[in-house]
Design a protein around this nucleic acid. Structure first.
Lengths: 344, 344
DNA sequence: CTGAAAGCGCTTACAG
DNA sequence: CTGAAAGCGCTTACAG
């Protein structure tokens, strides 16, 4: 493995000059730069990352703390992050924390002990408030996606607006008897979870239009969980005419339950979700779309700009803790329609 | 940030001794070790990874090259890798290559230029043969999951057995008229893709039992894609009594198509997939199970053992290029049953 | 069992 | 525009 010294010698210059030429620093004559570049290419020179890190203190790496990688939301955010990081020639160090209480905290401690990154993004639910505030000690740009939080810069769908839009869509179609179905948040979120915010939005719409008051149902977080819960709800003769689900996964469970019970959608039941997962289209699910990969790209863009302003750690000025809220988009498919005339 | 020197001074020993005490190296008196440990804890000392890397040449990082993170198979493998790497106190550097032709190759080049890792796992389809063989130049343990390949150590479901088991299950139930539906592989795989191997297995079973010969259908890789294709197939009066899908995603598309056409499953149509994705259970899909997270854990275990044997790069001996094949497991649910008596 | 010293491979003031 | 030298913070023979 050739090193800078070899390149310098081959080009007939000093290590200092070789370094400057290769890094693109100003103050190197074009001729010298070309000579060095040529030598480097010839030898197949690759600078040692470790040496550079030690000398500059910069890792060119951004860390990602996530509670999961094998679910749509997290995978999509991660995809966006990886893509954007790559565009900036940065690496992605992945910490798959898993849910808390299942070893997540230990992994977090390991990260704090070991992780050397220039910037950090934590995806919702990977951390609780106490840990999030410890992140500030790191002295690097930190951002959260999936949760508006006062602890750091954050990026997230406007859950309230999403919840309202979903309910309002059904109200506009003529529904007066809706039920809200959400799934549990596995980890205690920082403040209210996105489910909570969507649920509250639903309640506001309910109150605003004087809809029938029904208890909000919370199901286990899986298609199977919402399927079973929906089956019970829909089997009652007194079932609602529409269901507002907190996520597409929950909504899909409802669709499945309706299918098993022989309830036609949307003729006899309207269903709306949030997310627009890839399978939603195939199922004709009306939903509120969000684009987590975009959030991932944006969070990296922010980190890069923060890094550009303060190459070495946080300045004395207050860190940026603003929040970016994404507007939800209603996607109408075939799972929603006006309710049937009252039965009887 | 305290450094080793500070710890040494606080403990009243030399840097050398402090280093040895902290690293757990042999030849340090218990009393000294305790003293140093205490000082380190007191100061909140964290060794600089960059300095350690530079001194030892070890990164304590394993790289992952994957074509995707937001799909079940890849996400699951990644989850297993992250979990196992963490248990070994190693970090995971993620390279989300995306499909080739869409910038994947460029990202690969960047990895080759920059990625400094102790071991590497490439997940199927992220690389073509030529690139895979270049990986050998890295001089680090390399393994592939999802594809048996002569280029490196590899881990993969026994696709042939999976394909056979799926078809044999339906044959045992009495089916004589089956159709095989598979989805495209987005990237040119190293040898035959897993879809190909499953398809060929299906053909062997067909031949063995003298089943009706039907053309194999290939659909775009998405639920929507298989749904549409299945709709066309099932709408024909001459449709098969059972469908062997190359993956659960494809199988789910078939289920959806059957639902839309009013074809009852399993009474009028049997459907079987491969994977056992989380949604399969909710849909009552009979399938051939595989556990990608386990593959991820195993691949890391192998890398760790390879690293333990040859801490610094490959030895002169031939690298291990053996293959681990996982036995498929038939999971019978409610999407398969004996065919109805011949219609008419 | 412990220490002084060299070395890992870069970058960056400081001079010129 | 270029070079000599110090320094980043560890580890590891080599002596003792």
């Amino acid at each position: 493995m050739p090193k800078l010294d070899d390149v310098a010698r081959a080009a007939g210059v000093s290590k200092a000059t070789a370094s400057r030429a290769l890094s693109g620093a100003a103050g190197v004559s074009p001729a010298t730069r070309a000579k060095v570049q040529h030598a480097a290419d010839d030898l197949g020179f690759r600078a040692s990352g470790a040496a550079r890190r030690l000398a500059t203190g910069l890792t060119r790496t951004i860390g990602v703390l996530t509670p999961s990688v094998d679910r749509w939301y997290f995978g999509s955010v991660l995809h966006g992050i990886a893509h954007a990081a790559d565009a900036h020639e940065h690496d992605v160090l992945l910490y798959d924390l898993g849910a808390f209480g299942r070893g997540g905290h230990e992994k977090f401690e390991r990260f704090m002990r070991r992780g050397e990154v220039d910037g950090l993004v934590t995806i919702t639910w990977s951390l609780v408030g106490g840990d999030l505030s410890r992140l500030a000690e790191l002295g690097i740009p930190v951002a959260t996606v999936g949760e508006p939080t006062p602890h750091s810069r954050s990026f997230c769908l406007d859950d309230s607006a999403a919840g309202e839009q979903a309910a309002e869509h059904l109200v506009r179609l003529g529904h007066r008897d809706l039920l809200h179905l959400s799934s549990e948040t596995e980890v205690q979120p920082i403040d209210a979870s996105s489910s909570d915010r969507r649920k509250r939005a639903f309640e506001r719409v309910s109150a605003r239009h004087g809809l029938r008051l029904r208890p909000v149902i919370v199901t286990p977080t899986s298609l199977e969980g919402s399927h079973l819960a929906a089956r019970e709800i829909l089997a009652r003769r007194d079932r609602p005419t529409g269901i507002v689900a907190s996520t597409d996964e929950v909504a899909l469970g409802v669709l499945l339950a309706a299918h098993h019970l022989g309830i036609r959608v949307p003729e006899e039941l309207s269903v709306i979700g949030v997310d627009d997962v890839p399978t939603a289209a195939a199922f004709g699910l009306t939903t509120i779309r969000q684009d987590p990969a975009q959030h991932g790209e944006d969070v990296v863009a922010w980190i890069m700009s923060a890094l550009a302003q303060h190459p070495h750690g946080q300045p004395d000025t207050e860190p940026d803790r603003s929040h970016t809220s994404y507007a939800p988009v209603l996607v109408i498919r075939s799972s929603t329609a006006p309710p049937r005339e009252p039965r009887g």
